[in-house]
Design a protein around this nucleic acid. Structure first.
Length: 285
DNA sequence: AGGCAGGTTCTTA
DNA sequence: TAAGAACCTGCC
């Protein structure tokens, strides 16, 4: 990875040789504030904002200074991990479906997102389609987050609310975010995290099983949401969330069973390829 | 108009 | 312990 400074440090040009496809990451379903905007992508994480644009030859412009890139975005995009290396675990002859999915999804990475933001986002996600999830989250951020930037199209960008900020939002205000019956789950999670009853930071030390147990104890968090939190919020790449799409893939394409042992500890990355592929392909026939 | 969307909780046997 | 129903809301 090479770094080139421009424009008085306000813009960085980075060369990324490993798998890196902004469009696929945006559509991979792991993030909800990562959207196409003009000729690039608008990315919001917590109280950070960056505009990223591909400029050819594996080079990308980031609208931030070097310190912010190295201190935050480099880690956020998980640039130290080789996803091309992970794809090499897939045997084309023995698992042609996953191989096809991984070729199709080449460029996807698992972002290192914040456990708090992921917890709330995936609680909201249940029984909602992706546009609806995004709309709810944006309303929530506009309601209780802070103004942190303006995107190239002139939209004001708000930070994701902190536990303190979200715990102060009334149930009526949550209802106004189209959360539906999830409003009480979000409220309770905010109260639990703000009070310290749920200490997401300390959960990093737990075993996979211990972490799962803590997450399932939260109101509104079941196995699917907990697995999303473990994979996307805690970046434990072996977590394998099973949603309706993945279940469809497992039933149709893996009647003999998926090779979880073979792909450990990267089953979660494989899940992303399968998810992305199944959604765009459809699963007829 | 009725069903469904990246599920979870609550109720009932 | 395990199915089945109920649940908000928006969109096709």
């Amino acid at each position: 990875m090479k770094i080139k400074k421009e424009d008085g440090n306000r813009k960085m040009q980075i060369e990324i040789k490993d798998d890196f496809d902004l469009g696929k990451i945006a559509d991979s379903g792991q993030c909800f504030r990562f959207n196409k905007c003009g000729d690039g992508y608008s990315v919001v994480a917590g109280d950070k904002y960056v505009f990223v644009k591909e400029v050819g030859d594996d080079k990308y412009d980031f609208s931030c200074d070097e310190e912010t890139f190295e201190g935050f975005w480099e880690n956020y995009f998980d640039l130290e991990t080789s996803y091309s290396g992970i794809r090499k675990l897939i045997d084309k002859k023995k698992d042609i479906y996953l191989y096809s999915a991984s070729e199709f999804g080449k460029g996807i990475r698992i972002l290192r997102q914040d456990p708090w933001e992921m917890l709330i986002s995936f609680i909201i996600s249940q029984r909602k389609n992706i546009p609806a999830i995004k709309a709810s989250i944006e309303k929530l951020c506009a309601l209780s987050g802070k103004k942190i930037a303006t995107d190239p199209e002139g939209n004001i960008i708000y930070s994701f609310p902190t536990p303190k900020e979200l715990s102060k939002v009334s149930m009526d205000q949550l209802t106004a975010c189209s959360l539906g019956y999830r409003d009480k789950y979000v409220h309770q999670a905010a109260m639990d995290v703000f009070s310290g009853a749920c200490d997401l930071d300390s959960y990093k030390e737990l075993s996979d099983e211990g972490l799962m147990e803590k997450l399932l104890a939260l109101y509104g968090v079941g196995v699917k949401v907990a697995n999303c939190e473990i994979l996307f919020g805690y970046h434990r790449l072996n977590a394998f969330p099973k949603d309706v799409w993945i279940n469809r893939v497992l039933e149709l394409r893996y009647p003999q069973g998926f090779l979880f042992d073979k792909y450990a500890p990267y089953n979660g990355v494989m899940q992303q390829y399968l998810f992305f592929y199944s959604r765009s392909e459809g699963l007829e026939g």
